[in-house]
Simulated assay, not measured.
Amino acid sequence: MSADVSAEVRNQRVKEFLQILPLTVELAGLPQCDPNRLFTPDQMDLRCTNLKNAYKLARQLLKEMSEGS
């Protein structure tokens, strides 16, 4: 039964991530790339780090807004 709860929680987190993804991308401020240009591993790592930080801020913002702060 705990495996079902874990799957449910995981699905809920994925759904939440996808819902706030547009806000996350805007907060990250990442420039659009040329479709014919590939990123280096370091550039991809930096972009991922920026998205992770922006996601944390987006979640915090939504939490504060829902609490009425």
Rank of each mutant, 00 (worst) to 15 (best):
M1I: 03
M1L: 06
M1Q: 12
M1T: 04
M1F: 08
S2A: 14
S2C: 03
A3W: 13
A3E: 15
D4H: 13
D4Y: 05
V5Q: 04
S6H: 11
S6R: 11
S6T: 12
S6L: 13
S6P: 01
A7I: 11
A7G: 14
E8P: 05
E8D: 15
V9W: 12
V9C: 06
V9Q: 07
R10L: 10
R10N: 12
N11R: 15
Q12G: 10
V14K: 15
V14I: 13
V14T: 08
V14P: 01
K15M: 07
K15A: 12
K15D: 11
E16G: 03
E16I: 13
E16K: 07
F17L: 14
F17T: 06
F17V: 03
Q19E: 13
Q19Y: 09
I20S: 05
I20L: 15
I20N: 00
I20M: 06
L21Y: 10
L21M: 13
L21T: 06
P22L: 09
P22I: 11
L23H: 07
T24G: 10
T24F: 06
T24H: 02
L27A: 00
L27E: 02
A28Q: 02
A28P: 01
G29C: 05
G29Y: 09
L30N: 00
L30C: 03
L30R: 04
P31W: 04
Q32N: 11
Q32E: 14
Q32P: 08
Q32T: 09
C33Y: 11
D34I: 07
D34R: 00
D34L: 00
D34C: 01
D34H: 02
P35I: 01
P35A: 01
P35R: 00
P35K: 01
N36A: 12
N36R: 08
R37Y: 09
R37A: 12
L38D: 11
F39Y: 15
T40Y: 04
D42V: 08
D42H: 09
D42M: 01
Q43V: 00
Q43K: 07
M44P: 05
M44D: 06
M44N: 08
M44F: 07
D45A: 12
D45R: 15
D45V: 02
L46I: 09
L46N: 15
L46K: 14
R47V: 03
R47T: 01
R47M: 13
R47C: 04
C48T: 11
C48A: 14
T49N: 10
T49H: 14
L51S: 03
L51N: 00
L51T: 02
L51W: 04
K52Y: 07
K52Q: 15
K52D: 06
K52R: 12
N53L: 07
N53P: 06
N53E: 13
A54M: 02
Y55W: 11
Y55V: 00
Y55F: 12
Y55E: 05
K56Y: 14
A58C: 05
A58P: 09
A58L: 04
A58N: 00
A58W: 01
R59S: 03
Q60F: 03
L61A: 06
L61Y: 06
L62H: 02
L62S: 01
L62I: 08
K63M: 14
K63F: 05
E64M: 08
M65N: 06
M65H: 10
M65L: 10
M65W: 11
S66V: 01
S66K: 14
E67I: 10
G68P: 02
G68S: 04
G68L: 01
S69F: 02
S69Y: 07
S69A: 13
